[in-house]
């Protein structure tokens, strides 16, 4: 079988240019995503400064052990994703699949723990949804409700990104399974890896902002 030299898409001069354009495009997209989350962070910072006491108290009602466990899961999935990138570059289909599946399992674990946390908060009547009773055991109930609104919006938006990331990884598993164009798979894996690591970075700041600024 003749060795096929990878050819760039029509609009590019060479593979190097195509690769740089792919990564640049992904970074630009991630920067817009950063500003989407950034609006949420700015809103949280504004209210945190205005209502320091009740926001700290509300943070104390979240589960730090579960969130820490989730951070470990997510950081470990960042490792397996980085290893998937190395495996695809090394041309090992089997290892790439193993690391992709491990990343997905860890991501699903994260969502499972997050879901359990939400369930606990729902049971504690701290979920500010229409039709549900919001029972705050303290003063400044409205401000506490604001905290939980922001908490559910920010963690919900992040969980949505995790679901999209898992969908992306699911598609990649099928593509790696077929293993048709390794050069293309390498680029696709790098782009998926950027997205996954970005979701990881966002979580680090959500974890710090929501869980660690307690009393």
């Amino acid at each position: 079988m003749p060795i096929v030299k990878p050819a760039p898409a029509e609009q590019f001069d060479d593979m190097g240019q195509q690769r740089r354009a792919v990564l640049m495009g992904m970074w630009v997209f991630l920067v817009t995503e950063l500003l989407l989350f950034g609006g949420g962070f700015a809103m949280f910072a504004m209210y945190r400064v205005q209502h320091p006491q009740v926001f700290a108290e509300a943070a104390g009602h979240l589960s730090l052990p579960l969130a820490t466990a989730n951070t470990v899961l997510l950081l470990t999935s960042g490792l397996t994703m980085a290893l998937a990138e190395q495996a695809v570059e090394a041309g090992s289909r089997r290892l790439t699949l193993v690391f992709y599946l491990a990343t997905m399992a860890l991501g699903l674990g994260f969502l499972g723990v997050k879901g359990y946390e939400w369930y606990q908060e729902w049971q504690a009547q701290l979920m500010p949804l229409p039709g549900l009773v919001f029972a705050w055991p303290g003063n400044e109930s409205q401000q506490a409700e604001l905290f939980f609104n922001l908490y559910f919006i920010l963690t919900g938006l992040h969980a949505l990104h995790m679901v999209i990331g898992l969908g992306l990884l699911g598609v990649m598993v099928v593509l790696v399974q077929r293993w048709r164009d390794p050069h293309r798979l390498t680029r696709q894996t790098q782009v998926s890896g950027l997205y996954w690591a970005f979701v990881d970075v966002i979580w680090l700041f959500l974890f710090t902002t929501l869980y660690l600024l307690g009393p």
């Binding site: 740089r20 990564l23 640049m24 970074w27 630009v28 991630l30 920067v31 950063l34 500003l35 950034g38 609006g39 962070f41 700015a42 910072a45 960042g78 490792l79 994703m81 980085a82 790098q190 890896g193 950027l194 690591a197 970005f198 990881d200």
Partner: peptide
Amino acid sequence: VFFMRLRASDGLIRLFAVGGVLWLGLLI
């Protein structure tokens, strides 16, 4: 720097990454 490979990226990508963080910083 490591998992998103900024260490091995060209200057323009680093500039975009720093720019994103900078604008977010200004916003907050």
